[in-house]
Simulated assay, not measured.
Amino acid sequence: MKNISFLLVCFLLTANNLFSQDFKTPVEYLNYISKEEDAISKNMWKYTKTIAHSKSARKIDATRKNLVKSIQLAKANIAKLKNGYKGDTEYKDQVINYLSVSEIIINEDYSKIVDMQEVAEQSYDFMEAYIMTRDLVNARMDKEHEVVVAGQKKFAEKYNITLTEGDSELGKKMKLSNEVFSYHTELFLVFFKCNITDIMLLKAVEQKDIAGIQQNASSLLLYADEGLQKLTQMQPFKKDATLLESTKKSLEMYKKVANEYAPEVINFLLFNTKFEETKTSLERKSDKDRTKEEIDNFNQMVKDINKKVNDYNKMNTKFNQDKNNMINQWNASGDQFISRHVPND
């Protein structure tokens, strides 16, 4: 299956070009720092949009580098405010610390997460670890951001400033994007748990491992039923049920694999084993030692195995085509869902 991209959504504090100077009022000081929001917020939004709407790794990395540069520039400019506001540097220092953490996360932690993503599809445990790490990084960013928000409120209270509550337009878009990716991830994990189990089932089929086929078919049926039950508790995303329905269809397909495909494979392998044993036994005997009954039985088995091989190949072709179509459909639904709901302006 093709890789499903997962976004490291970070909510960055924003700030503008600041120069070493004195401020006449605390409001002027806060406003000056707040103007840094434009550069970083716009670059963060470009980064989010690029991941949502582009498949170009080069373009995505270029927007990430621009984001990092805007953070570095803002940090350098704010650092020039040596005296903060009339010697009060607490809030300024909190902002600089937050920007430093943001830079480290985007440069270093993000790089580690990308490395984890490269192996995430090898197992469900790897995928869970990747998503958990990504969420922990986001949580770290949120925690650092809360410190800055608290520092801003403390500064405002200290100097009797009334802060205007409410999200900016960019803030609203970032919040919506985070909800979109979170919803997509939740359904992806339901789909992926069955998908990776089906891959293991196919490996068992290739190895003619009957016990492995039975075990993975049983797990696949369990995960498909669990997933379908979970879907009944989920609501469409803003009245959009496309990804929900696509996930439901994929689980129903995996149930057919477990209930219909796997048993037929086992029956074929058992008959094929019996045929090979009969053939070997007959070949070990000389012509004079072979009974008519044995020969007639073997000849009938030859006819049966030829028909079963033909039926088996047809079944394999059909299930493989149906599954490939289903996987492609789920991936397309996931991409379209993200593209449809993450704003592109």
Rank of each mutant, 00 (worst) to 15 (best):
K318P: 01
S102D: 10
S286D: 14
K314I: 11
L7V: 14
V309Y: 07
M200W: 00
I113T: 13
L187I: 02
K92E: 06
A15I: 14
I51Q: 09
S281L: 09
I40L: 01
D304H: 10
Y29S: 07
S246F: 02
Q321F: 01
Y223K: 12
D209K: 05
E128R: 03
E252L: 15
T185H: 03
Q300I: 09
D198A: 07
I60A: 01
K55D: 15
C10F: 13
H53D: 01
S168L: 08
N320I: 02
K75D: 05
K203A: 08
A52L: 03
N160F: 09
I60L: 02
M116I: 02
Q214C: 04
S281Y: 02
G227T: 07
T317Q: 14
K173G: 03
N331T: 05
L163S: 01
V137A: 11
N313I: 01
N83S: 13
L202Y: 15
F181G: 05
W330A: 00
T89S: 04
F191T: 14
N178R: 11
H53L: 09
V265W: 09
P26E: 10
I4D: 12
G166D: 00
T242H: 02
N324R: 15
E294T: 05
Q233C: 04
L163V: 06
S102F: 12
D93Q: 07
L231R: 09
I105N: 03
Q207V: 09
I266H: 10
F319I: 05
E28P: 01
D304V: 13
A139Y: 13
V190W: 01
T291Y: 04
W330Q: 10
L7N: 10
E252W: 03
L221W: 04
V190S: 02
K42F: 06
L81H: 04
V180H: 04
N259P: 01
N3G: 04
P26V: 06
L269F: 12
M326W: 04
F298A: 05
I71M: 09
I51E: 06
I33K: 01
E179S: 07
L243E: 00
K82Q: 12
E90V: 14
F6W: 09
V180W: 05
I199W: 01
N216Y: 15
Q329R: 11
N320S: 14
Y110D: 06
K279W: 02
F298M: 08
E165N: 08
Q321L: 13
P26A: 06
D296L: 08
D304Y: 00
R290F: 06
T197N: 13
F191P: 09
K143E: 08
F188W: 12
Y261F: 13
D22H: 11
F337Y: 11
N216H: 15
T278C: 11
A211V: 10
I338E: 01
E179K: 11
A39G: 03
P26W: 11
Y183V: 02
V205K: 15
I33V: 03
N316H: 07
V149Y: 07
S100F: 05
